[in-house]
Amino acid sequence: MGELRVRSVLVTGANRGIGLGLVQHFLAMPSPPKWVFAGCREPKGQRAQELQNLASKHPNLVVVPLEVSDPASIKAAAGTVEKLLGGSGLNLLINNAGAVTISSLENETLESMRQLYTINTIGPMLLGQAFLPMLKKAAQESPGTGMSCSRAAIVNMSSIAGSIVEMYAWDYGQVTSYRCSKAALNMLTKCQSLGYREHGILCVALHPGWVQTDMGSGRSRTPPLTVDTSVRGMLKVLSSLSEKDTDTFLDWEGKVVPW
């Protein structure tokens, strides 16, 4: 297994949970990225306080205003990142921002379905489009051949709840709009892998596990994984990926999740 070495990375939904954990781990690497871009909706808000505290201690961390459901916000964020990169590419785009609504099949609504598709599926598609020139640039300027997350990659944070084969924990939570949006994200990952393969960009969907976050916790059961355990596992997986792994759906331990 190789070591994950990136010059630049963008993490969406970076103000809490898994996104914040990813940022913390990138900053703590023996050879941290020159640029860690942390996207969040309200950089000056109370929910981003921990992220701002980190930015005050790490000059390589840049907090970028980013609402993944807003095309104008995505375009503005891409412009900010491109300017700071100064002509260099973006090695790694991690589409982590996501949402869930607790619902059953009977009370699912148009509004919920539309909202979750916009955030969980359309957002990652638009982000891939907006940052494609920078990802292509990173692939071109990286030494060697073949694909890797150290060269250029899009990582879509999916969920086993989007697996049509598994239908994980259906009796615990139907969350139909969430499941459908993540299944669609998995298809998007497949499409991106085919569309961006010629540019040397690896595309993969990751299931982080059931993690103790604001989004993952609730009801009467405590998720089994801490953010730290999940993030450590995922970064280990990302460091091992190569060309043969593009268009796959893997969990935080590197195990294949059935579509």
Rank of each mutant, 00 (worst) to 15 (best):
1 M>C: 14
6 V>H: 09
9 V>H: 00
17 G>S: 05
23 V>I: 09
23 V>D: 03
28 A>Q: 14
29 M>E: 10
31 S>W: 00
35 W>R: 13
36 V>C: 04
46 Q>A: 12
53 N>Y: 00
57 K>Y: 01
59 P>K: 12
61 L>H: 04
62 V>C: 10
63 V>C: 02
63 V>R: 04
68 V>Y: 05
72 A>G: 04
74 I>T: 02
82 E>S: 15
83 K>E: 15
88 S>E: 14
90 L>I: 09
90 L>P: 12
91 N>H: 14
97 A>I: 07
98 G>P: 08
100 V>H: 06
101 T>R: 14
103 S>T: 13
107 N>P: 05
116 L>K: 02
119 I>H: 10
120 N>D: 08
121 T>Y: 04
125 M>G: 01
128 G>D: 01
129 Q>E: 13
129 Q>D: 00
135 L>G: 00
138 A>R: 01
138 A>C: 08
138 A>F: 11
141 E>T: 13
144 G>S: 15
147 M>V: 11
149 C>G: 07
152 A>N: 05
154 I>K: 00
158 S>D: 13
161 A>L: 15
161 A>Y: 08
163 S>V: 09
166 E>W: 05
168 Y>Q: 14
169 A>Y: 05
169 A>W: 12
170 W>C: 07
171 D>V: 11
177 S>W: 04
179 R>G: 03
180 C>M: 15
181 S>E: 03
182 K>Y: 04
184 A>F: 02
186 N>G: 01
192 Q>D: 04
195 G>C: 11
196 Y>H: 12
196 Y>T: 06
198 E>V: 10
200 G>A: 09
206 L>G: 02
207 H>K: 12
209 G>D: 06
209 G>E: 06
209 G>P: 10
213 T>S: 10
215 M>E: 11
215 M>T: 05
218 G>R: 04
220 S>E: 13
220 S>V: 09
222 T>L: 09
223 P>I: 06
223 P>A: 07
224 P>Y: 06
227 V>F: 07
229 T>E: 15
231 V>E: 08
234 M>N: 08
234 M>P: 12
237 V>G: 01
240 S>G: 14
241 L>I: 11
242 S>Y: 03
243 E>F: 04
244 K>R: 14
245 D>S: 06
245 D>T: 07
246 T>Q: 01
251 D>E: 10
256 V>E: 15
257 V>P: 02
257 V>K: 07
258 P>A: 07
